[in-house]
Design a protein around this nucleic acid. Structure first.
Length: 153
DNA sequence: GCCAACGTTGGC
DNA sequence: GCCAACGTTGGC
């Protein structure tokens, strides 16, 4: 069992959108970074815990919990010329981009980025390191446990 | 809107 | 393979 933090822009898909989605599950399409893709392809497992993080918004932070609901499979948007995620260099016979499905767990209070930065037990979190831009980052068991406490209220 | 940090691209 | 230019991310 592994744990992950996944960033989503709430204007595109918020924790509420995830809760309202069919089967409370969304295909996590649009990842166009090789490191993030490789996490999904090589390290994700069904049932892995996900921290659902709201980014690029007025109140960035963790907004809920979710889980990995599928293995990695081909992201069809890369071949769709009308999609913002279209990748003209990716060929159907050798798809570059994959994604997983993510299923809603529960909504939590918003644990703000500022609060995360101030919490001693979270200092090692990859998402908090200077210059980090990855939309998917691993979370250690210790970090996950601390977060469960912080989100319990 | 700014800007630092980082990834990608493409000429050489 | 190097590396400058460019694009993107994402908090502020």
């Amino acid at each position: 069992m592994n744990y992950w933090l996944m960033k989503s822009e709430p204007e595109e898909c918020s924790i509420d959108d995830l809760a309202r989605a069919p089967n409370q599950t969304v295909p996590w399409v649009g990842v166009r970074n090789y490191q993030a893709r490789n996490f999904m392809r090589d390290a994700f497992a069904l049932g892995d815990g996900v921290l659902f993080y709201h980014s690029s918004c007025p109140q960035p932070g963790i907004a809920g919990l979710a889980e990995v609901a599928s293995a990695a499979y081909v992201d069809a948007t890369q071949f769709d010329a009308n999609s913002p995620y279209h990748d003209p260099k990716s060929k159907p016979e050798a798809p570059r981009w994959l994604h997983v499905d993510v299923r809603f767990g529960r909504k939590t209070r918003l644990l703000s980025l500022a609060e995360m930065r101030a919490e001693p037990r979270l200092q090692s979190m990859r998402v908090l390191q200077a210059g980090n831009r990855l939309s998917i980052t691993p979370v250690s068991t210790e970090e996950w446990r601390a977060l469960q406490e912080l989100l319990a209220d």
